[in-house]
């Protein structure tokens, strides 16, 4: 139980990046009328940025 909880907490930045930042970025792009680069869809771009940023935060322990 404790191990599972620790693993979940360790993964929390990645979960936050994919689960929250990705749709925020996607909705933000749509609301601002900005097209995602490289012909990507807004959500795909959000998942890419949120996922990479979340993985970075998980590995390094910091978002910035």
């Amino acid at each position: 139980m404790q191990k599972a909880l620790k693993a979940l907490l360790w993964l929390l930045p990645l979960i936050f990046g994919v689960g929250f930042l990705a749709p925020v970025i996607a909705e933000g792009l749509v609301a601002a009328g900005i097209a995602a680069p490289f012909g990507l869809g807004a959500l795909t771009f959000g998942l890419l940025v949120g996922g990479v940023w979340g993985a970075f935060a998980t590995v390094t322990g910091r978002w910035i």
Binding site: L8, L9, F16, G19, F20, A22, V24, A26, E27, G28
Partner: peptide, 28 residues
Amino acid sequence: IGYRLGFYAILIALAWNGLALEAFFLWW
């Protein structure tokens, strides 16, 4: 820890139901 996980769960649920910007600008 439960509060923290609950907060994230609420934010994620709102975000995937079309309320991402509302969750971001009203709470996070």
